[in-house]
């Protein structure tokens, strides 16, 4: 029982990060109909910015803020400089361009920082509290929950309640009509990329210290898990991404806890396949609503 509780809490903590990363994928999918395969590499680049800023200033939090800012900026730049100019005639084109971007970003990071693992700092202790003999969450886990919770709530508020959120949704659903109504659709697209990339940077900042450390490929496996989470939830559904992220986090935690961590990559792929076979639109798909 103790082990189950521990694995559940640990899985939710990892799942929160997957949820954030999956949400970033969903944001771009909804806005641009592109699965951003470069998101892992972009997020790692932002984390390296944090590394440099923290190394120069000695402050974790300055580095943290710098990573978020770098993420936002990088998203906007990738949209304006690269993705905007990709011909969407074939859905494969943006995928190939995104994969090229991965190679480019990872190569540049390797040239600047080298390809050894660099330890990533944490702002709070990672040793878990013990409550009545039961090992539960660490302060860092709580920080992860809080950070993801704040970002998810903020995004939900922006999209549901603000004028710019309404513009972004309208631009994503009906770009031509939105332009007729005075919406700067291109600007909304760039903003969507920036927000998504900022969320991706946050996820990288949260997850990298819990793994081997900072490395140009540090987000590769996280990307696979988050992509699975996004597909599980339905690429069109932000709530689906959050639920999918938590579900994938739990699954991986249980598999690794009860069956051995070697099996986790396999478990992710099995889950991805199962969802694609049974319900390709994802569990929260809104395909029925869009078909109208």
């Amino acid at each position: 029982m103790d082990r189950l509780i521990f694995l559940t809490l640990d899985g939710l903590s990892r799942g929160a990060v997957y949820a954030a990363f999956a949400l970033a994928l969903v944001l771009i999918w909804r806005a641009a109909r592109v699965v951003n395969f470069a998101q892992g590499a972009m997020a790692v680049a932002a984390a390296y910015v944090a590394y440099s800023v923290t190394a120069a200033t000695g402050s974790y939090w300055l580095g943290f803020l710098a990573a978020l800012a770098a993420g936002l900026l990088l998203g906007a730049v990738v949209d304006r400089v690269v993705m905007r100019h990709v011909n969407h005639a074939s859905p494969l084109n943006p995928v190939i361009v995104a994969l090229e971007l991965v190679l480019l970003i990872q190569a540049v990071l390797g040239m600047i920082y080298g390809s050894q693992f660099r330890p990533a700092e944490v702002p709070f202790s990672r040793s878990a509290f013990t409550v009545g003999g039961l090992t539960v969450l660490s302060p860092y886990d709580l920080f992860v929950f809080a950070a993801v919770g704040v970002v998810v709530s903020a995004l939900a508020w922006i999209f549901a309640r603000t004028a710019v959120g309404l513009r972004m949704r309208a631009a994503a659903f009906a770009p031509e009509v939105s332009r007729l109504l005075g919406v700067n659709v291109g600007g909304m697209l760039t903003l969507g990329w920036a927000l998504a990339s900022g969320v991706g940077a946050l996820a990288a900042m949260l997850v990298i210290p819990t793994e081997l450390g900072l490395h140009p490929h540090a987000m590769d496996l996280v990307f696979v898990s988050a992509f699975t989470a996004a597909v599980v939830g339905g690429l069109d559904s932000p709530p689906g991404a959050v639920v999918g992220g938590l579900a994938v986090g739990l699954l991986l935690s249980y598999v690794s806890g009860y069956a051995g961590s070697d099996l986790t990559p396999l478990a992710v792929l099995v889950l991805l396949l199962a969802v694609l076979l049974v319900r390709p639109g994802g569990l929260f798909s809104t395909v029925a609503a869009r078909r109208v």
Partner: peptide
């Protein structure tokens, strides 16, 4: 100038209120 396009251009995923407010956001 306002253009109500062919097929009306109602955004099905947005509520009536959101569709209407969109017309005055600018």
């Amino acid at each position: 100038m306002a253009h109500v396009p062919e097929g009306r251009g109602v955004i099905g995923e947005l509520s009536v209120d959101e569709n209407l407010r969109l017309g005055g956001l600018w």
